[in-house]
Design a protein around this nucleic acid. Structure first.
Lengths: 223, 223
DNA sequence: CTACCATTCAAACGTTCGTTTGAACTCGGA
DNA sequence: TCCGAGTTCAAACGAACGTTTGAATGGTAG
């Protein structure tokens, strides 16, 4: 019987994942060496290959740990909307989509914050294997939301909707990744720390307006 | 007198810059080795350090070659709006801002296309030195546009405008970088090649609507 | 106690990295 | 013709990379 203190089952794995999350965010995948990573995690250099098999497999594990639950939460939020007959509001759908992402940023211990920045950057990651990896992690939830928005916006041409969802996804990704770039525009440091609740309101208003913008562009095209 | 065919002044420099543009886009900065780069450029391995000094200085040169003219074009477009008294339209200002960026993507020879993807990704670049580098390249033009939008939208709280510009900037960055991610949403390959003109219309409509969205969010905040 | 399995460890593997070196080459001007 | 500055070249530098190895270690079941 395992009476010893909590039995740190796979504690090494967790320490590696936490260190990887932070260092991948700070220096990128290629910029993070296994020596630095294992030193930060306080484990032996060989531990990564023992527990994960390779560096690439570690990258995959880092994403799976957070991304799978996040997309489950996304689908759950959407299903809640649908059972409550509130799925006809594009704004509600947008909020359901972005909330699980923004939740990451209010993680007090910093792990979620690190992952949020890492995730937001990875959609434009050079490494094709990594991009495809998270692409297929997203695919199921993405198709659900696409179908929901098609129902909520029946008058919108499908192709136009695809592009607007693309823009929406991009804005969220950038917001998660570029948390320190606001000062590029503000010209000074942000007055206080990220207020995730306020950010959610701002982002939802911006995206809802963009997604439901008038369709005049298709007519003006002749110009 | 230099009668010889066009005198390829600094042709080696150009070949290196072109190869760097493509390879940095494909594999990132750290993922691109000087050996691969110089082989692709058809020059000697030592040529990069001879002509640029170091790999980091090459990265800087790659950005300066395209980014400086682009931001000059941005400011010029804005000044044209202002002399024509059309600077009161947020949509016109947005169009002036995004057009020079989108122009890169219709470069027939591919160089601009490569740079567009590279640029869009770099706002979320892990390497802080690189991020700061392009940050300060952007700063002057950014402040001009911020002032213009403050004048065009006098009723908008300054802080709200900063965030909406941040979102706008992010959407453009993502659009430039993630040219192949649309199929993540579309679920299939895009029917035809990027139509920059149509994309400009779609992006302008989306961003103008987002930027001028109603301000109700500030009231709803109590909920 | 012993045997066993999972895990940890220090050390080394071969490869590739960015950069440096000093000689060879090119070519216009004295 | 010869000089010298500008450029290219093959070769090598030490350092750092991801991964592998085989021996030690620790706790558990027989």
């Amino acid at each position: 019987m395992t009476l010893r203190a909590v039995k740190p089952q796979h504690e090494t794995r967790t320490r590696i994942l936490d260190a990887a999350e932070e260092l991948f965010m700070l220096h990128g995948f290629e910029g993070t060496s296994m020596r630095l990573l294992t030193a930060k995690a306080g484990v032996n250099l060989a531990a990564v290959n023992y527990h994960f098999g390779s560096k690439h497999a570690l990258i995959e594990a880092v994403f799976r740990r957070r991304l799978d639950p996040m997309n489950v939460a996304r689908v759950a939020e959407l299903e809640k909307l649908e059972t409550e007959d509130r799925a006809s509001s594009p704004e509600a759908i947008i909020r359901a989509f972005i909330t699980p992402g923004l939740r990451l940023m209010e993680d007090a211990k910093g792990g979620g914050r690190n992952f949020a920045r890492l995730l937001g950057r990875t959609y434009t990651e050079p490494n094709k294997a990594v991009r495809q990896l998270i692409g297929q992690m997203y695919a199921p939830a993405m198709q659900r939301y696409k179908a929901a928005l098609e129902r909520a916006l029946p008058q919108m041409p499908r192709e136009e909707l695809v592009w607007r969802m693309h823009f929406m996804f991009g804005t969220l990704a950038y917001t998660l990744a570029a948390t320190d770039t606001v000062q590029l525009i503000a010209g000074c440091k942000p007055e206080d720390r990220y207020d995730a609740r306020l950010l959610e309101e701002r982002l939802t208003a911006f995206l809802a307006a963009g997604l439901t913008a008038p369709l005049k562009s298709l007519i003006k095209k002749a110009a």
